[in-house]
Design a protein around this nucleic acid. Structure first.
Lengths: 135, 135
DNA sequence: CGTTACGCTTACGTTAACGTCAACTTTACT
DNA sequence: AGTAAAGTTGACGTTAACGTAAGCGTAACG
């Protein structure tokens, strides 16, 4: 078991994470991924895969790729100067606050939506009753 | 207190909900709002304002305008035929499930992000210590 | 009666995040 | 050698949700 089974082709990546080649190349162009090259071809490392997972999850929360790129720097924290770290740290704090606000609103909306649904269900039920009575 | 103080001009709407005229006209064109007309001019009713609030909240959760439009039909449930109601009802059920999944993921992400931040904070602290020691 | 304010329509411009060719090259069979 | 599979780099197309500017109507104000 060498280091090489740590590397994946673009197709393998696509299959594994359900994305297109275009997407992976796009992410590379945006400096979200840094696959190494074997000649022309891209080879994705374990690190790229970890990053991709975070990217995909980030997207599900509505983060922009640029925001995700900044968050990813948290994982590179050792590379940066202290001021940079502080900045990144602050960005993440803000994001966290945003997310918690979002969750609170989401809770509210879920509750209200559920009420709406109950209401709708009751109307449907009453309509069925009316229909039955008319038969 | 007649019915007329129930009506707002486009500018009043913009001020009240922090949106642009363009946005309101756009929402109308997409059949999310239905302001009445006084000559050429739009007059927004209480109903439009209620809808706008829901639209803006929907957006904060990353719903598309089209999805929001469908959700808004829930509030119009009396107007529809039974099959239509059923469809809308199902759509809302699905959305609700989506939202709950989203919340679960959000909870997870918040937890992980918090851990990352703790980690970052510790590193920063230790760096300050090191710096102090060097002085 | 001119101009400022508000409003309208039409229509082209913009950003994000890819999709979708086209036109190669390289590698892998057969 | 022929060809199919997998990969590459441009470069233009697409959708959503407005922004922005042009050109026009009208209504109140000084």
């Amino acid at each position: 078991m060498t280091d090489s089974d740590d590397l994946m082709s673009i197709r393998q990546m696509c299959a594994a994470y359900d994305v297109t080649p275009r997407t992976l190349r796009f992410y590379e162009s945006k400096e979200l991924l840094f696959p190494i090259r074997e000649g022309q071809k891209r080879l994705f490392t374990k690190r790229d895969r970890a990053r991709l997972k975070l990217i995909l999850r980030g997207k599900r929360f509505g983060f922009s790729l640029e925001e995700i790129r900044q968050l990813l720097e948290l994982y590179n924290i050792g590379d940066q100067q202290q001021t940079q770290i502080q900045r990144t740290y602050e960005i993440a704090q803000d994001r966290l606050a945003d997310m918690e606000r979002q969750r609170a609103e989401l809770d509210e909306a879920i509750t209200e939506l559920k009420e709406q649904l109950d209401w709708g269900a009751k109307i449907i039920a009453s309509m069925k009753q009316t229909k039955k009575a008319a038969e």
